[in-house]
Amino acid sequence: MNKVRLLEFTYLFCLKILSRLVPVLSEKRPFIGFMVASEKAFKKPLFGCQMCGQCILHYTGMVCPMGCPKNLRNGPCGGVRGDGNCEIKPNMKCTWVRAWDNSTQMMVFTESIEEIQTELDHRLSGTSAWINELGGGNDE
């Protein structure tokens, strides 16, 4: 299994477990603390997570869009260099070139990259994305 599919599988696995746990525990302070700490511990080294609290990794080929220096969440800007690198950081591959490549390798979420992502709610910065997504009793 390649890396993108492994990450996608891991996401689906976490979703399965957390969609049961989070609605029950989302009000409990120790659980909130545990979720924030573990999201920081895993997503930071894996994806360069900036704790925006509104994770859309599975829509973007498991590449964090917040790694884009313009924080674009809906696709690449028009400034991508001919070699596919970033306009602002010439030595970095464009986040969206990577996201696009990876999304074509996904099993379930290949076309999710075309969905319109709403504007960020900056109040959620630093909070747990899993609790924000599943905490409202939105058991899928």
Binding site: P76, G78, G79, V80, R81, G82, C94, V97, W100, I116
Partner: peptide
């Protein structure tokens, strides 16, 4: 901007 990468994605981006 159809003239910079990711080329195959630019039409989809327009439609988005």
């Amino acid at each position: 901007n159809p003239f910079v990468p990711p080329f195959e994605q630019r039409a989809l981006r327009l439609l988005k």
